[in-house]
Computed example of a mutant assay.
Amino acid sequence: MTNRKPEPDASQSPLTWTALLAHWTAVAQAAKSLPDEGDSGRLKRALPEIIGLQAVAFAMADLDRVLSHERSTAIDKASVLVRRHASAINDLWRGEPLPLAVEEVIEDARLSLRLAELAGLEWVVADEVLIAEHPAGLVAGLIAAGFRGDLYLPTPGIELFEGCPAGFVRLHGGAFPDEDFVEAVSEFLGEGVAGPERRAGLRQAYRQFDFSKGGPVRDLVAMSEDSLLSGQPLLVPAVLGGEVQRVTLPPRGPGLATPLPVEFEGPGDRPGDGA
């Protein structure tokens, strides 16, 4: 188990937002030498805007290299750029449908912004089973220490099985939490978890039931912000935006007799597909 926040690649020194965006802009500019596709003059005139959107998308993917105190500013500036480039492209087509490839460039840039804002640290169950206690003590300590982010933890008293997300913490704008906060969550979850690792958003686990078979049949893991899945969410918000949330007490009675399979909705939800 790792009891401190993961560091960015040691081979990559911290960069300012300006330097990072300039780097990816230079890379994107090189694409101008590639052969043009299609016969639309509008597409050619849109090339600077497309390059700008691609530069933002690539820069957002590297945002963890930005100095921590510049992260929020970087996201704000990137958001302005995406709106500006997308507006210019739409003006060129004057209300006509955009080519699919151009739409995808715009959506990729918007998605990169969203993922950068939602990024956080995730712990995963490494043992056969994990049963967490009620987090009242942990939450009280974090709030007293000034934690103002989001914290998701296992439902108290409910079994989580190997491979299932066990915890997630993030700050506003996807910034790295202080090491003390990370250590406190790691200590609460115990030795039966792996991580934390950087991930572009919360993965939720849903316990799904088939009552014709007598109860729960699997735990399905998916990106929380993109999913409307049936089942019982296994991670509960203990803190949201620095505000303490109500967490139920552990249930009474026996637990599950046998482990459930942990399955994943999509390739991006599988272990190792982090930020």
Rank of each mutant, 00 (worst) to 15 (best):
M1H: 11
K5M: 11
K5Y: 10
K5S: 14
P8A: 06
D9E: 13
D9G: 00
S11Q: 13
Q12F: 15
S13K: 15
S13T: 13
L15S: 14
L15Y: 11
L15E: 15
T18C: 01
T18G: 00
A19C: 03
A22W: 06
W24D: 12
A28C: 09
Q29W: 01
A31M: 02
L34N: 10
P35L: 06
E37P: 04
E37Q: 14
E37T: 14
S40T: 04
G41F: 12
G41N: 14
K44Y: 03
R45I: 07
P48H: 09
I50N: 06
I50L: 15
A57Q: 08
A59V: 01
M60F: 01
A61T: 10
A61Y: 06
L63M: 12
D64M: 11
H69S: 13
E70N: 06
R71C: 04
T73C: 08
D76N: 09
S79P: 02
V82P: 03
A88M: 07
I89H: 11
N90C: 10
D91T: 12
W93N: 05
G95T: 02
L98S: 10
P99Y: 05
P99W: 05
A101F: 12
A101L: 14
A101M: 12
V102N: 03
V102C: 05
V105F: 06
D108A: 14
R114D: 11
R114K: 15
A116Q: 07
E117H: 09
A119W: 01
A119R: 13
G120L: 04
W123E: 03
A126G: 12
V129S: 12
L130Q: 06
L130D: 03
L130T: 04
L130C: 07
I131Q: 05
H134I: 03
H134W: 09
P135R: 05
L138H: 08
V139W: 01
V139R: 08
V139F: 02
L142P: 07
L142F: 03
G146M: 08
R148C: 13
G149C: 01
G157D: 09
I158C: 02
E159Q: 15
L160G: 00
E162I: 07
G163M: 01
C164Y: 00
P165M: 08
V169R: 06
R170W: 00
R170A: 08
L171G: 07
P177S: 04
E179P: 05
E179K: 09
E183K: 13
V185Q: 02
G190I: 06
G190C: 08
G192D: 14
G195V: 02
A200H: 13
A200D: 13
G201S: 08
L202K: 05
L202D: 03
R203A: 03
R203P: 05
Q204F: 05
Q204W: 07
Y206E: 09
R207P: 02
S212R: 13
K213L: 13
G215Q: 08
V217K: 00
V217L: 02
R218H: 11
D219H: 11
A222S: 12
M223K: 08
E225L: 02
D226S: 13
P237R: 07
A238G: 09
V239R: 04
G242W: 03
E243W: 04
V244N: 07
V247E: 00
V247S: 00
L249Q: 13
G253Q: 14
G255M: 06
A257M: 12
T258S: 14
P259F: 00
L260V: 06
F264A: 02
P267G: 03
R270Y: 09
R270I: 11
G274A: 14
